[in-house]
Design a protein around this nucleic acid. Structure first.
Lengths: 356, 356
DNA sequence: CGTAAACATGTTTACGTAAACATCGTTCGG
DNA sequence: CCGAACGATGTTTACGTAAACATGTTTACG
């Protein structure tokens, strides 16, 4: 090992063996002929004479100096890092929110500490939060999307601000989400406006998901506001297969002319069931989804769906967290982001008695 | 603010204002009546008398003590953290690999530092790597899935081991990926074995993606090995829409009876085009995808596809990185993981002259 | 021309942890 | 029954950084 090479500093140890160590401020200071504090000033944009700065920068470059973030964090008490706690990464929406947060965080000089829980029990969440607190984060975003179960039983870290992305409003917590009810209303009203006598619903996992529960509730409310009684609900989880199963039942029922699905995957399954049973979409049956995944425009037929604005949700969540991390008082409560209806080819006017 | 409450230590500052600070070892030591080193020993499972240990644990609980990871990292030089560098989070495969890595990392006591790049230019990658090096990671996994362009021009951190997840073998780097060629061969042979005279291909972005290029190459090679010449390639990117565009051309060509698509999204677009043009799948045209996304079993018709074993890829990548982080010598080179053909309803025997 | 402000840099110290070393009492084998 | 080995704990120190304070050197203005 050659001494003085570009990428490090050779250190003599008691064993007599030389070891490669990352260059520290002291090393840079020595090479540049200044004090380590001056190196620190250069590193942090303090007041330094131009000539000195150049000399220090040259020394940094030569040694491949990188500030030690652990030391910096220890000294300053800030980690420039945001913890993101998610359930699985199987959920389209969660991932798109994560993506946005990752971009925002990078732009703001924060890194992302990601934790995904396979099994979202309350205990695991609390454990993960405690892990995050112990790990080096200045703030936490919990993407609870679709998991109730916990409510006020989570032990939130006391010293680290956190923001929830969830449809439920914990009145003492800062949270953000897409407005599930508004989105569902958009879908149901679209179908009713097309003349359909009623709208059937294939739900998500309403037991464990606030989003699923709210979409169902809003479907019910919207029907009622038009003087209609909601037909029986079908469904179970977010998967396309559960949509297919529900779709088989719906396809067998001649009365069904309009279906609102809790998400696009479910809609995909419903579409398949309709095709299998020879019911034409949208001629015989109209189908609406929720999410606007990347693929739904290429379903057969292209799916009318409710586009969630995940970008805005993610940006809002990060912006709120940043404020809180900077010590500003952020008001608790749920911020709702509006959705948009995207009309494609899976919906059409009610065919009336003609079709039967 | 009450002094001595469970969650912290009140500190008098020169300003006269009391501020809440996280409890340190010194605080715990004071309360337990031991030295801070004894607290350290309890924290790290050192030799401590049972009675003392209990006293210290009680003090820890009372103060809500959490070890300061920055200090620990500074002292030990290890961060218990793995950096994961990805391009977008829009790619099914990348996300599933990330998910596996997140689980493995958590199990091994590592946290994940996630960086996703919108724009995957070489410069950005190098910049991100440098950022990761400066941030607190013991090792790095690069999920380059589908991005060539960089090759040997990336400046890999010298002091931090890294593992690539990529189809290309950088002979001086540790890397892992699904065997694209084996997977494509599986697909093409399946179609040929069904009696189709040849197989058409809708490719991914072969310019920027090794995976896409390898799938195309293998398709070509497999045809040649049966004495066939590859028909013209169509395609462009990974999206369903590009599949649709290619599908429109294929649907108009009566000679097309079998199509191998570079991924499931493309296959979805091709299916839609076939439906629109009244070509029945699989009766008239057989279609095969690649990936086995969660939805492809519910496409219409359910898609025959090549299942990539992302779980094994992710596990292998993390296992290799762990070895390297522990200082073991890990051999450079590409590890390939086999894929599996999943036969569903989008493929059938060649209809022969009958169909035309 | 003198003195205060502004500038440029150096010195000391503390952040919280854990390795290395030091100390003291106890047990055990010959 | 004495010394060695061991067990339990305390003391010192260093990791790399940056705030706070100290020092010296210029500039500016009455």
């Amino acid at each position: 090992m050659e001494p003085g090479r570009a990428e490090g500093v050779t250190v003599s140890q008691s064993s007599g063996v030389d070891r490669l160590r990352a260059a520290s401020m002291a090393d840079v200071a020595l090479l540049a002929g200044v004090s380590s504090q001056t190196v620190s000033r250069v590193s942090n944009g303090g007041i330094v004479a131009e000539k000195t700065r150049e000399r220090v920068l040259a020394a940094m470059a030569e040694l491949g100096y990188r500030p030690n973030s652990a030391a910096r964090a220890l000294k300053s008490g800030r980690f420039q890092s945001v913890g993101v706690l998610m359930f699985t990464l199987h959920n389209t929406g969660s991932i798109r929110i994560l993506d946005t947060i990752a971009v925002e965080a990078a732009a703001g000089g924060y890194s992302i500490d990601l934790i995904s829980l396979g099994d979202p029990t309350t205990g695991h969440i609390t454990e993960a939060l405690s892990r995050l607190e112990q790990e080096a984060v200045d703030g936490i975003i919990l993407i609870l999307e679709a998991h109730e179960l916990l409510e006020h039983s989570i032990a939130f870290p006391a010293r680290v601000p956190s923001v929830l992305v969830d449809s439920q409003s914990y009145d003492d917590r800062i949270s953000v989400n897409a407005d599930q009810k508004q989105g569902a209303r958009l879908a149901v009203e679209h179908l009713l406006d097309l003349g359909h006598p009623t709208v059937w619903h294939v739900s998500g996992p309403t037991e464990t998901s606030n989003a699923a529960a709210e979409r169902e509730q809003s479907w019910r409310d919207t029907l009622r506001s038009r003087g209609l009684v909601a037909p029986p609900v079908l469904g179970g989880n977010w998967g396309a297969e559960s949509g297919y199963k529900a779709g088989v039942e719906l396809a067998a029922n001649d009365e069904v002319s309009a279906v609102f699905c809790a998400n696009d995957q479910i809609a995909l399954g419903v579409l398949r069931a309709m095709h299998e049973h020879g019911r034409r979409v949208p001629d015989d049956v109209s189908v609406v989804g929720f999410d606007d995944t990347a693929e739904s425009s290429q379903y057969w037929p292209p799916l009318t769906t409710v586009r969630q604005n995940f970008k805005v949700v993610g940006e809002t969540a990060f912006a709120l967290l940043r404020e809180a991390m900077l010590g500003e008082a952020v008001e608790a409560g749920l911020r709702l982001v509006d959705n948009e209806l995207v009309v494609r080819s899976s919906t059409a006017a009610y065919p009336g008695a003609r079709a039967r």
